[in-house]
Simulated scan of single mutants.
Amino acid sequence: MNAYEIVMESRQKLVEQVISNMKKGYIFTEKKWDAQVLAPHNPVSHVSYKGGNRIRLIQQVVEKGYQDPRWMTRRHLQEQGYYIKKGEKQTICEKWIFTKKEKYMDEDEQEKVREVELEKPMVSYFGVFNAEQIKDFPPLVQLEDQELSETMKIGMDCICSSECRIIECAQPEAYYAPGLDKIVLPLRQMFKDEESYVATVLHEMVHSTGHHSRLNRNIENPFGSIEYAKEELRAELGSMFLKADLGISMQGEHFQDHSNYLKSWISVLEDDYNELFRAASDAERASIRIMDCYQEYKKSPEIGRKPQNIKDVTLTPVK
């Protein structure tokens, strides 16, 4: 098989496993997870795996029961003097190439090199191994558990770094209103715990990145439609990525449970398994944008937005 066929076969197998999970009522697992494990990275190159590759490696963590988020190529391991345990198999990751370098002559007849966009992207792939598959690899240094007060502090910093206004009011829904570019939340005391509050905040913040002035996704769709379900999948994945990147407990629940969307997601993925990778890519872009704003706010907190409380509001929601 060529590289494209290998990548597509790998995608299909992953989506079949995700669909199987969804039919049981969840995306990856019923278990609670350490956020650190859901942030796969290469400790040698210091690269964090993103988008569809992140989904691939999370699924392997679930399937194999790994407790280590570190993944490396065979070449990196050999360079570091480590060996793969007997019988261990690699996990395929994909890489898409959109540009190439070409030589050209400038106006002074000097040869230079520039990067140009390919007419058709090229796909390649590479294999990685989890640290638990490596003989005598140094143990993982575990992150200390966050106190709930620290979780709330992270959540409030996210709110204050939001690119759109976030308000709390005495009503039972959590949603993003694209027309007014606002996130509306129930009062904080209506949530079961602090993790659930922050999980809901992050979910709605991912929706807000779809605004036409930001990442410009198709987010204004009628409730119950396939396109509406697709955006919910992006928000679900994006909030999960953010919790992992922020080190927030995975035990929180969203204010609106995602189980109602599972049947729609199954239908979408069965029709086109590439949709999971499009969703993961969009979710990654959303989480990166939110993290960039969060980091910028942490440098200059005095310029951030403050959450506000209102008594009543009538908006067109994206939940």
Rank of each mutant, 00 (worst) to 15 (best):
N2R: 08
A3V: 02
Y4W: 08
E5H: 10
E5I: 03
V7T: 06
E9H: 11
R11W: 05
L14I: 10
E16W: 07
N21M: 03
K23D: 09
K24H: 13
I27S: 01
T29A: 13
E30K: 14
Q36H: 13
V37Y: 03
V37I: 15
H41F: 15
V44P: 00
H46Y: 12
V47R: 13
R54T: 03
R54P: 00
R54S: 04
L57Q: 05
I58R: 01
I58Y: 01
Q59L: 09
V62N: 00
M72W: 00
R74L: 14
R74Q: 13
H76L: 05
L77F: 04
E79N: 14
E79P: 02
G81Q: 08
I84E: 07
K85Y: 10
K85H: 07
K86C: 06
G87R: 08
E88P: 05
E88D: 08
K89M: 12
Q90D: 07
Q90H: 10
T99S: 13
K100Q: 15
E102Q: 11
K103Q: 12
Y104W: 11
D106T: 07
D108F: 10
D108K: 13
D108I: 04
E109P: 00
E119M: 15
E119W: 01
G127S: 08
V128M: 02
F129W: 05
I134K: 00
D136T: 05
P138E: 09
D145V: 11
E147H: 12
E147P: 08
T151A: 05
M152A: 08
I154A: 06
G155V: 13
M156A: 03
M156N: 07
D157F: 06
I159N: 00
I159Q: 00
C164D: 06
R165Q: 14
R165L: 14
I166D: 00
E173Y: 12
E173G: 06
P178H: 05
G179K: 11
I183R: 01
L187Q: 13
R188Y: 07
R188M: 12
Q189M: 12
Q189T: 10
M190P: 02
K192T: 11
K192P: 03
V198L: 04
T200E: 08
L202W: 03
H203S: 05
V206N: 04
S213C: 08
L215A: 01
R217L: 07
I219L: 09
P222K: 08
P222N: 10
F223E: 10
G224W: 05
A235F: 02
E236M: 09
S239F: 01
F241H: 02
L242E: 03
A244Y: 02
A244K: 04
S249K: 05
M250D: 08
F255N: 14
D257V: 07
N260K: 14
K263P: 01
S264E: 12
W265C: 02
S267Q: 15
V268G: 02
L269S: 03
E270H: 08
N274E: 11
F277L: 10
S281R: 10
A283H: 02
A283N: 03
R285F: 10
A286T: 07
A286N: 10
A286D: 10
I288D: 15
Q295T: 14
E296G: 04
Y297A: 12
S300L: 09
G304M: 05
G304H: 02
G304R: 00
G304A: 08
G304W: 04
R305E: 09
Q308G: 09
N309S: 14
I310H: 07
K311T: 14
K311L: 14
D312N: 13
L315Y: 05
K319C: 09
